[in-house]
Simulated scan of single mutants.
Amino acid sequence: MTKGLLNRAAMAATLAAWTLAGAPAVAASAPAADRPVSVRYVFDWPVADFAIVPIAVGQAKGFYRAHGLDVRVILPPDAQTTARMLASGEGDIGFEGATDVVFAANIALPITSIASYSQHNSWCLIGRPGEPINAADLAGRTIGTFTDSWTGAMMRFVLQHAAARAGSVRQIITQVDNIPLLLAGRIDLATNVAAYGVAAALEQTGRMPELACGDAIGVPDIPVWSFTASPAWLARHGDTARAWLAATNEAIGWSVEHPAEAAVIFTRAFPESGSAAFNIAGWRYLSHAMSGTGGYLAQTERQWTILSRALRATGQISTLPPASTYFTNAYIPG
């Protein structure tokens, strides 16, 4: 995906860096009663995008302040640093792909998921406007993909669903964005979380792209991203984690109910993220994936079992521990 989830080699390098630096000494917060507790929120990408909308809303609308928190967004230097920053104490709560959480457990990097960011798998095959996608017949098609682990896991499901051999589908790896290649006719289909493809296509053509998602392409409906933290930080700052998730839950709810206003708030806070129109289109689409049967933030053993088994089947992880290894629901508001 454009979001740039880690691959296994990058995660191993992260563990090596953390090991050399040593495990962090996490100091307990003891702020004055009238002073908010600082929380460093580390994004997964060096450039802000509309996935930060709820956090920006939480800041601007006072949701965090009401829970006694002062949240600062940190953009990492690259897409391979968030886990290391949390493990080494350079950040408190992170935003990471669910696959990265599984990779971390596979190499004993101390990171755990404390909540799901969204509730549905909005990763899709994306086609040019007006050209419907036949997901059952992909043989001979050229598909723009990325090197991230989420794309690798989802493409396995797609090819199984289409009964296509990997070699019969030409996968063109792109590093930044595959929508321009799609719209220029250089590839037949693109892959990404749909919101990014929708926003890009609307901005460039004024038309909705064709989408094939979920059951139509054989991918499981599991969350793409997680909020994460290190067990060491959680052990000392459990109340802060609970307060942060409670405030974030409220901010997500407000952002879903007011998508255009929420996206404008984000754009003002992060003007380098693109136009307000781009962010409104992207967040409006992404907002539909935020709530599930358990409301916001919920995570289950089922989602982690499906994901870890898919990564194991494709050789991306070497072990398959219990699903409970990857997450905790201890800090999600009741």
Rank of each mutant, 00 (worst) to 15 (best):
V102L: 13
V102K: 04
V102A: 05
F103H: 13
F103A: 04
F103M: 15
A104M: 02
A104T: 05
A105R: 15
A105S: 15
A105I: 12
N106C: 05
I107Y: 13
I107C: 05
A108I: 07
A108K: 14
A108Y: 07
A108D: 15
L109A: 05
P110Y: 00
P110G: 01
P110T: 04
I111Y: 06
I111V: 04
T112E: 06
T112W: 02
T112H: 04
S113M: 12
S113N: 05
S113T: 10
A115P: 00
A115G: 13
A115D: 07
S116F: 00
S116M: 01
S116V: 03
Y117N: 01
S118L: 13
H120D: 00
H120L: 01
N121W: 02
N121I: 01
N121Q: 09
S122Q: 09
S122W: 02
S122C: 12
S122L: 05
W123Q: 12
W123P: 06
W123T: 09
C124L: 03
C124A: 06
C124E: 00
C124R: 04
C124H: 01
L125A: 06
L125Y: 08
I126L: 03
I126T: 00
I126N: 02
G127C: 04
G127E: 00
R128W: 02
P129W: 01
G130N: 07
G130E: 12
E131Q: 15
P132N: 06
P132S: 03
P132Q: 06
I133G: 11
N134R: 14
N134V: 15
N134H: 10
A136E: 14
D137C: 05
D137V: 06
D137R: 12
D137W: 07
L138S: 08
L138D: 09
A139C: 10
G140A: 08
R141N: 09
R141C: 07
T142A: 09
I143F: 10
I143K: 10
G144L: 04
G144A: 03
G144Q: 03
G144K: 02
T145V: 15
T145D: 11
T147H: 12
T147G: 13
D148Y: 06
D148N: 13
D148V: 04
D148T: 13
S149H: 11
S149V: 10
S149I: 05
S149G: 12
T151E: 08
T151Y: 05
G152N: 13
G152K: 03
G152L: 11
A153F: 02
M154R: 03
M155N: 07
M155T: 01
R156C: 02
R156A: 08
R156G: 00
R156M: 06
F157Y: 15
F157R: 15
F157E: 15
L159V: 07
Q160A: 11
Q160E: 11
H161K: 14
A162L: 07
A162W: 04
A162H: 10
A163W: 00
A163C: 08
A163D: 04
A163T: 06
A164S: 15
R165G: 13
A166Y: 12
G167R: 02
G167H: 02
G167W: 00
S168P: 06
V169Y: 10
R170I: 10
R170G: 09
R170A: 07
Q171K: 14
Q171D: 04
Q171W: 08
I172K: 12
I173D: 10
I173E: 14
T174V: 14
T174S: 14
T174R: 08
Q175S: 14
V176D: 11
V176F: 13
V176N: 11
D177K: 15
D177M: 08
D177V: 05
D177Q: 13
D177H: 15
